[in-house]
Amino acid sequence: MEPGGKAFENSVLLTNIQRFSLHDGPGIRTTVFLKGCSLRCPWCSNPENLSGVPQAYTKDGLDGVYGEYMAQDALAEVCLRDKGFYGEKNGSWDIKNAGEISSLPGGVTFSGGECLLQMDRLVPVCETLHRNGVHIAAETCLFVQPSALGLAIKYIDFFYADVKILDETRCREEEKGDLKLYLSNLGMLLDSGRPVAIRIPVIGGYTDGAGDRRAARDLMEKYKRKILKIELVKGHNLGEEKYRSLGMPVPRYMDVDDRQMENYREELSGLHIPVEICRI
């Protein structure tokens, strides 16, 4: 049976469900890593989540498969197991400033890969979670069809949206992405009024140049009233083993030191959006 065929209609392709996740949104969360991505960032640390089909791998002499089709109701059931640890918040989740993030409850975060590629299949999961009062976040690169984003805006309560290479040609060549689609999606998301935090991976040779930083700054300037906060994220090589297990070459890129990260933060400070530096 081909993926996408009938048997897979009510299921979601994922590689991992991480409980007690503390870095993927407010509170204590369960993070679901969905398999399949629309981009190919050269620094990606999740090679197992790029291809949209299950993949065989070999690690320490043992064979395995990345990716599992999980039925929607089964996924919702796992996500609800830690409901007792998500906590509650009375009142609206549509917060307007960064200071309120910590008042939001924990919940479920869809990550990836690009989780919105499977947004239509996530809808029933989201409905079950919302019926149970669970807060939902998503981490997205926004290189997706506007219809998928539209659905997401309807069902997702909090977004982490990436800002990566902002030069049209380099975006196409290095990330295999369509910048126009991205920019229009970013506008659509921010105009929707949903809470959005921006994540900027700062990667030596790709997104850390003066031009990259200026472009990011200008983009942030345009939407500054609609952005809760910006996170500057340093690259890391935690994905190395997974690249090897898939027989893929391990990506190399230059390190960005703490001072450069601080400078970047400085440059963004005039926007009056809170900026955090995140190290993994």
């Binding site: 007690f20 503390l22 509170g27 204590i28 007792g84 640890f85 906590g87 924990g106």
Partner: peptide
């Protein structure tokens, strides 16, 4: 690094 969330975890764990 996660003291606040750990406190939150403990408080919620009591309820479990």
């Amino acid at each position: 690094q996660n003291r606040d969330k750990f406190v939150m975890f403990m408080m919620l764990a009591i309820r479990q």
